[in-house]
Design a protein around this nucleic acid. Sequence first.
DNA 1: TATTTAAATAATACTGATTACAAATTAGCT
DNA 2: AGCTAATTTGTAATCAGTATTATTTAAATA
Lengths: 142, 142
Amino acid sequence: MEINQIIAKFHEKGFKATPQRLAICKYVLLSKDHPTTDMIYNEVKQEYPTISLATVYQTLHLLSDIGLLQELDSNNGISRYDPKTSPHINIICKKCGKVEDYESERLEKFWSKIVDDLGFKPLGQRIDVYRYCEDCRRSRVK
Amino acid sequence: MEINQIIAKFHEKGFKATPQRLAICKYVLLSKDHPTTDMIYNEVKQEYPTISLATVYQTLHLLSDIGLLQELDSNNGISRYDPKTSPHINIICKKCGKVEDYESERLEKFWSKIVDDLGFKPLGQRIDVYRYCEDCRRSRVK
DNA sequence: TATTTAAATAATACTGATTACAAATTAGCT
DNA sequence: AGCTAATTTGTAATCAGTATTATTTAAATA
Ligand SMILES: [Mn+2]
Ligand SMILES: [Mn+2]
Ligand SMILES: [Zn+2]
Ligand SMILES: [Zn+2]
């Protein structure tokens, strides 16, 4: 997503396009990492050293409200943020919480049929699959 | 699930079948409500008044570990517990967090194909669809 | 059935991610 | 350039969940 499009989106929705918000967008909307708040805060601080953690939280909620990303709560109490809001599978490690996207044409086709069956247009969806990631399997004592 | 099967499951996995655990199971494994910890605690207290909240948390984690239920973390910070661990859709209200099951033969068929594509057997899955529930739509100011 | 003991419970203190707050700053409007 | 409501910051407060530990107990054993 172009920076100008993002600015336009903020304005269109009646929000200010502050440099803090744009710095957060630049990082998180391009990220493939499903980053945590802490990852986002630390990364954005490089470019914008005075940014507050409160601003990061507030901006992530705003981006979620206007549909630019999805918050993924996890059972270790640490949320991750996903800029891909279209139907796709997140492969999530049960141990460390790492998230990987799984793209699937088949899923997309299936999903549109499922949504037809539902009878309403969802505000969003979350499709997770759980396993232990390679790193965690390797270091597993069992 | 029969109470004797549950007791057997605990023993099989090497855990004690305590009355606290059985009281929790009796409530949560039959529940269609995707109850929160608090709902479970308050309900089980009726039957077992001296139970501790710590025991409820510990038991829910145990049940999750042995695959009898799934924890659903939500963005309001309050987890819900789902005794249905097979692939199905949870229709979740974005406002109040209420969860409703959506049963779908089509989904089950689709899902097995998706899993084949994945190339590994998941430890579990979570398929959510978001909307505002009827109650919340009704009381919505917008 | 009584004894033994590792596992489990209960009560409570603690943790840490997130939220609330209020003073200072600022984007965008005119 | 000046205005002002929106936003940011820094910090305090919250509170769901976890850790701790003394006490109790399920169930294995004799
Ligand atoms: Mn994703
Ligand atoms: Mn369900
Ligand atoms: Zn991992
Ligand atoms: Zn609702």
